[in-house]
Simulated scan of single mutants.
Amino acid sequence: MAKPTRSTGTPRYAAESSVTFNRTERVLAFMVGGIIGLGLLCFIATIVMWLVAPDARASMPWPVVLAIPLYGFPIGMLLLFVLLGVVWTRRARENRTSH
């Protein structure tokens, strides 16, 4: 598992203990954001294409642009569930060790 990195705040003066950020969680979060963001952009581009040039559906690159939301949104949701599982597992371990 990836080594956690400490936050930049000093724990001596902070009201709460410093939070650890796991590299795996950060990568998963950026992957979820990137895939869902790209899917939304392609979805908006598809709507604009249908309004402006409805005959261009069969020409390239529109089949690819149409396919990205179809595959991107389910993959993004699966990665979101994986991220939630990783975070919940880490927090459960931290709670077990703190008591």
Rank of each mutant, 00 (worst) to 15 (best):
L70S: 15
I44D: 05
A58P: 05
D55V: 14
S59F: 11
S18C: 10
M49S: 04
S17A: 13
V19T: 05
A56S: 12
A67E: 05
A67Q: 08
V52F: 00
V52H: 06
I44F: 01
P63W: 11
D55T: 15
R57V: 15
S59V: 15
V65Y: 07
Y71G: 04
S18R: 06
R23A: 07
I35R: 01
P54M: 06
T20A: 12
L66H: 08
G39N: 11
F43E: 03
G39C: 06
P63K: 12
T24F: 03
R23L: 09
T46W: 02
T24D: 12
R26Y: 10
G37H: 06
A53I: 14
I44A: 09
I36A: 08
L51N: 05
L66P: 00
C42D: 09
V27S: 04
R26S: 13
F73I: 00
R26H: 06
L40H: 11
S18M: 08
D55H: 13
P63I: 10
P74V: 12
W62G: 01
W62M: 12
I44T: 11
V27H: 00
R23Y: 09
P61H: 04
A67F: 15
L38Q: 05
V65G: 06
S18V: 06
T46P: 00
W50H: 08
A45D: 06
S59R: 15
P63M: 12
A56I: 07
P69I: 10
P63F: 05
N22H: 11
E25K: 10
E25Q: 12
L28A: 02
N22Q: 08
L70H: 14
I44W: 10
S18A: 09
R26W: 13
T46K: 03
L40V: 09
F21H: 09
T20H: 14
L41R: 00
L70T: 14
P54C: 09
R26T: 11
T24P: 01
M60C: 03
F43T: 12
I36T: 04
G33V: 01
W62R: 03
C42M: 11
L51G: 03
M60Q: 13
E16Q: 14
C42Y: 02
W62L: 08
P61M: 06
V48S: 03
L70A: 14
I35G: 00
A67Y: 14
A53T: 15
V27N: 03
F21N: 11
P74D: 08
V64E: 10
I35P: 00
V64P: 01
P69E: 13
T46H: 02
T46F: 03
L41P: 02
Y71R: 15
L70G: 15
G34M: 04
L70I: 15
P69H: 06
L70D: 07
S18L: 09
I47G: 03
P69V: 10
L66S: 02
F30R: 05
L28F: 01
M31D: 11
